[in-house]
């Protein structure tokens, strides 16, 4: 995806077991912070809303 121009950090992957609640919280915090730092995603935004 990054090769095609999506900013690095916009997309994340992780592997979290249902028993790893603490890891889940950590990853979510982390991803949210990275995406907030990148700002709003203007790339994949349609000009007009399709009905």
């Amino acid at each position: 995806m990054e090769h095609m121009g999506v900013e690095p950090g916009r997309l994340s992957f992780s592997w979290i077991s249902s028993a790893e609640s603490t890891k889940f919280v950590e990853v979510v915090k982390d991803v949210t912070a990275t995406v907030k730092a990148l700002g709003p995603n203007n790339n994949f935004k349609k000009a007009a809303k399709v009905a």
Binding site: E2, H3, M4, G5, V6, E7, P8, N43
Partner: peptide, 8 residues
Amino acid sequence: APEKWEYF
């Protein structure tokens, strides 16, 4: 990244 976006 922005250059890639524009390229495609």
